[in-house]
Design a protein around this nucleic acid. Structure first.
Lengths: 347, 347
DNA sequence: ATGAAAGCGCTAACAC
DNA sequence: GTGTTAGCGCTTTCAT
């Protein structure tokens, strides 16, 4: 008693029976009013509503959750909420969830797979009804394993090889092809590629688009023009420096995201390499920062908000049992935005 | 039956009694092991742990919450998760919460006070044990009202006039004074101020710091050099344009946040006004973007992560009943960062 | 050290 | 249309 005193102890919550007594009905009737069941007469409904109002009654969520076996809560696992790519996706998820009366639990993993695995336990815990992964770290097999057990999982910004797992992403091959083709059209013959995590499906696909564009431009593929970062500024910086050190000249870089392109900018500034005159740069994501850079960064718009929103719509539909012939692997359009960093034509 | 079929129906969750049976003990004993009660013999403890492992048992969160009257969940209300000022604070909150085994529910209000009031109901709902407000919209009186009822609320980036309400912020008067004094020292005699919401306490304080610096520099205060935005880029742009139209010349602007300073940049670029030669600019927040601007923006660092983290620490302490003479209104240091946008000395 | 039993606040099946 | 009752899965006296 004396040890577990918390602030909460001051509050005496009203219960449904208290409302029932005040309204002169049974708890069941109050519950019916609360849940908008039609089998209540207008007269008692008004009585009950008045009592609820009067007492400032709020139904206890935990009791509801226990009884109904659902929490109306979605979890989101992200590597870093502070990266705008992720926060825009989260915003899309949150807004759609709100529209369907779902709450959103945010799980920032700080880029640690251990934390992500831990957060995944919120599913068997029944803390959340479903989980959205916006991380490349949790493996396809792990996801598949949870889904096979019956848990609801959706994925944003990537796909999962197994069938029947909800995902929403863009077409990596297509937009990478477009981005690199644009560089080729600007007259570049040696184009470097800075990828993200080297072993991810997304990376293979972006590489594929890159190679396809080279082929179309009849440009030989040089493995020495390929390096990988980790999707962060520093990783991009380091990868670009390694590329320079190889003494394989190049006049353009395609970076797998804007953060890494930022690293390229820094390296160029340090070495007096002019963008776009000496080095053209194209990124991916269309982070807000890209517009403010000098020169403004050419990039591939990723409809982040839309990806989050659309996946959430489908996830909620699935949880409601409306999954008749629903497309599980959703691919959304992305478009190349040409700005100053690649607008210098070579001959 | 046929209407309410959801994916969840496939899953048959294990209950504590199932584990009890397998281990050959009672449910109470399993519960004791789970809650690390000391009154269990080592031998049975091992038996139980083995059974839990074997069944892959996960305690049901809702049942726990109902029984224990706490959800180990914190809510955060923010106007826009996609603004880095907020997402950094959220990150600080999340990390601290995680360290104390709390979960975090994110409530993005899209800048709407109605949504914020709605989210506040998660407190009487008992969906969350406490709520953190990172928004200027919910009034001091409303906050006070909830706290008086016994609900746990903390505030970040502002303070509440009433006593005994947890808050963590920086010293607006002090850093504004420092920022403007810096401009005075650079030789500026006409310095404009673009505030945030004109009627907020924070705005008064920043204005106070501004006026104090003018006084110290023996510079007359001109009301026509004051305007207000809404803390967003567009608001800053518009306020700056209005200032220009007044035909009251000025050579420097102090903007109440970096977003609005960004609007100043845009307006200057459109009109061929050079920063810092024709116009010095200082912002507030030290958003990441400020480093990448050309010229790099001088700004006041707000320890956003720290503010979120420290407030959360106190909030959790309070919920645990450890509030013996705890300082409720916490003020944290902020420092002026001088970059290129204000580094041009006038004579 | 362990078990039996009550109860957290709600909803839904069944009875009237 | 409304009330009675059982039970969701857990923790915590109380008894042994």
């Amino acid at each position: 008693m004396s040890k577990n005193v918390t602030v909460r102890d001051h509050i005496v919550d009203k219960k449904i029976v208290d409302v029932a007594k005040l309204a002169g009905v049974s708890a069941a009737t109050v519950s019916r009013v609360l849940n908008e069941s039609s089998l209540v007469s207008e007269k008692t409904k008004i009585k009950v509503l008045k009592a609820i109002e009067e007492m400032d009654y709020h139904p206890n969520a935990a009791a509801k959750h226990l009884r109904s076996q659902r929490t109306m809560t979605l979890g989101i696992i992200v590597p870093d909420i502070n990266v705008s790519y992720f926060s825009e996706i989260i915003k899309g998820i949150e807004n759609k969830a709100y529209a369907h009366k779902y709450k959103v639990l945010i799980c920032d993993s700080d880029n640690q797979i251990e934390k992500e695995m831990e957060y995944l336990d919120l599913l068997p815990d029944r803390t959340v009804d479903g989980m959205i992964l916006v991380t490349p770290r949790v493996s396809d097999d792990t996801i598949q394993e949870y889904v096979k057990k019956g848990y609801v999982i959706g994925v944003v910004g990537r796909a999962v090889v197994h069938e029947d797992i909800l995902s929403c992403k863009t077409d990596n091959v297509k937009f990478s092809n477009e981005a690199v083709r644009h560089l080729v059209e600007q007259g570049h013959q040696q184009i470097a590629y800075i990828g993200g995590y080297s072993d991810s499906l997304e990376n293979y696909e972006r590489m594929e688009g890159y190679m396809k564009a080279l082929k179309e431009g009849k440009i030989p593929f040089l493995p020495s023009l390929i390096d990988n970062g980790d999707f962060e500024e520093t990783g991009g910086y380091q990868a670009f420096c390694r590329l320079l050190e190889r003494n394989q000249s190049f006049t353009a870089v395609y970076a797998a995201n804007d953060e890494m392109a930022l690293g390229v900018y820094r390296a160029c500034r340090e070495r007096g390499i002019r963008i776009p005159e000496d080095m053209a740069v194209v990124g991916v994501d269309n982070n807000r920062i890209t517009e403010y850079l000098l020169p403004a960064l050419s990039t591939v718009e990723q409809p982040k908000y839309e990806m989050g929103s659309q996946l959430t719509e489908k996830l909620i539909a699935q949880m409601s049992g409306n999954e008749q012939n629903m497309q599980k692997k959703h691919v959304i359009e992305s478009t190349l935005i040409i700005r100053e960093s690649s607008s210098y034509k070579r001959d």
